[in-house]
Design a protein around this nucleic acid. Structure first.
Lengths: 348, 348
DNA sequence: CTGTTAGCGCTTTCAA
DNA sequence: TTGAAAGCGCTAACAG
């Protein structure tokens, strides 16, 4: 008895291709071609069946490392995100995953900065979906060590293709709604300006205001990192402005949550005293208080288009930067209403 | 011209070990040992430096597939989660990532069910952190095809080691707080009972009530899947009970959010009319309205202990099931208060 | 229709 | 102190 009785599994060497071949009475190369469904191969049905049967019976799983070494492809793509806690990434990942798996690729997520994740994922994946921010000013190919990459939801100077959604239009949607509601003093709890999404949303905010004939005072924009705490702080500052803004446009969902809480903390009501519109629609949004009026971006589509582009790059055809052509949508819920009649801006 | 002019990078073959060796004027085996810091090897400093310099200059990156094939280890671990949108997983993953990377492993996340992810990750990782639910009734080793695995935040019959936190104690903490506040009609918006965490939280709820001398009516427990929508529905049903519960204990953060919204929808105030306590503390919780009183579980620690166990398993030493010994903490914020004085339970 | 052969890039044992 | 050789498990070109 060489195998200890308690644990068969650990000592059990996995079945190799040659074991299957031997069991089927054929050469390994034949087994390989049968198992991979090689169309070129003509093989007797009877032989094919023997191979298939042996593989099933022995529970054969091809050794991925060997295959990767031979074919120089891993059939996996990686996605690197800065922050797993942002639900928007979950939706992007979902879209990417569907598209990738339709093409036979596995999607794996890693959290972290670009250089760190690159070092980690290098050689484990055939390409990278990059949603992570970076302090780099230029995304040059060498950054990724020759690994095909596409930027998701961020556009940066450099040679890397990027896939984005129309953040400017999304922001404009929010502002236009506020304008139509009668607001004139609309402030923006902006995202971190080193993030390209934040810049584009800010731009959309400004452009829409201008188009509405409203002047955007510089002090009506406060910058925050993309989280609740920073959003809360920035919104609180905005609410101290006099005349006080009657509406706040938050640059993402986490900032929107912080913003709602800042309004309440200032003993103001949403939407009676101050309207709030968020950005990104996630399952959460309709369960906030009040249910958040927000801009729904086509995030799942974003993920899937990005995966598609990456697959192109992996296939050797250079992908172009695109903007997903599904237009953003305004989801009207309860957090935006006409400004108070007495909106003199003097505050309470 | 064989290389097309436009794309230098794609055509560039990566540097192999033998290139480095050649550049340094040594054999590949020597280069390998130098680069891997082989302690056995005695090598002239001058030679070592030549190798190191060549590797740096040529920007050498070892081929992971080749190495994995040779060593039969990938130096990566996978974590499979059912739902990227649950912020609790983000915290668990963070802890796991830190521990894994301290041991030189890369952590990769995959979303999905167990069989699907297993097929995808098989051969790409040396072990699996399994946070995904399943319909399987028994987690036997064969389920994972011999891949070392540890269950994270779920304990199941079977042979797979699991790491959990003390959900029962956490739930009891919440109930005890409510009891001390004077509540007697405490309902539970429970999680899906096919999830072991949900069962343990329910058990903690029941035990703490009993200990407080309060009888838990069967109808005061409503089951929901772990999301806002289901939590909302289940809580709404609970609020229709007569006498109406004065407090609601939600089985996770997403359910808590749905619960808050159900209370408001019923035109009741939190905490004046109904107290709500959640489970899991995430950045969100303090920015809800009202700020959520909740139970903080040591999730990051959970991730790190789980990673540690997995590393053990990978090392061939069987890991035991453990419960993280950091006790849960009650984070008192604004969503729980004494029951209304007129709590006759007749409703409004 | 099936088998032979070579080799992907690396690590590691053994010999010099 | 260094090199030679073998082989991990697979695929693919070629031969029969």
């Amino acid at each position: 008895m060489i195998e200890p009785h308690d644990g068969g599994s650990p000592g059990q060497r996995p079945t190799r291709l040659r074991d299957v071949a031997a069991a089927a009475g054929v050469d390994a190369s034949v087994a390989s071609r049968v198992l991979n469904g090689d169309a070129q191969l003509s093989v007797r049905n009877e032989t094919r069946d023997r191979v298939l049967e042996a593989a099933a019976r022995l529970n054969y799983r091809p050794n991925r490392a060997a295959r990767a070494l031979k074919t120089a492809r891993t059939m996996a793509v990686g996605m690197v995100v800065p922050d797993l806690a942002n639900p928007a990434f979950a939706m992007i990942a979902l879209g990417a995953e569907k598209r990738a798996s339709a093409a036979g690729y596995t999607l794996m997520l890693a959290r972290g900065s670009i250089p760190a994740s690159l070092a980690d994922l290098q050689g484990r994946v055939d390409g990278l979906l990059v949603a992570a921010a970076t302090s780099e000013t230029s995304y040059r190919r060498p950054l990724f060590g020759g690994v095909p990459a596409v930027l998701v939801n961020r556009k940066e100077p450099g040679e890397i293709a990027s896939v984005i959604v129309d953040d400017e239009a999304g922001a404009a949607l929010a502002i236009r709604h506020l304008l139509e509601l009668g607001h004139r003093r609309i402030a923006h709890v902006a995202g971190p300006q080193d993030a390209d999404t934040a810049r584009r949303r800010l731009r959309g905010y400004r452009a829409a205001l201008r188009l509405g004939g409203v002047e955007a005072a510089p002090e009506s924009v406060a910058e925050a990192s993309y989280d609740e705490a920073a959003g809360h702080l920035a919104a609180a500052a905005l609410l101290r402005l006099r005349p006080r803004p009657t509406a706040l446009f938050a640059a993402n969902i986490r900032i929107a949550i912080g913003t709602l809480s800042a309004v309440r903390r200032a003993r103001l009501r949403v939407p009676e005293d101050v309207s709030v519109i968020g950005f990104d629609d996630t399952p959460l949004a309709s369960y906030l208080d009040p249910p958040l009026t927000t801009v729904r971006m086509p995030l799942e589509e974003l993920g899937s288009v990005a995966a598609e582009s990456l697959l192109r790059e992996i296939g050797g055809r250079r992908a172009e930067s695109v903007m997903v052509d599904i237009p953003p949508e305004l989801v009207v819920r309860g957090s935006a209403a006409p400004p108070p009649l007495d909106a003199t801006g003097r505050g309470s």
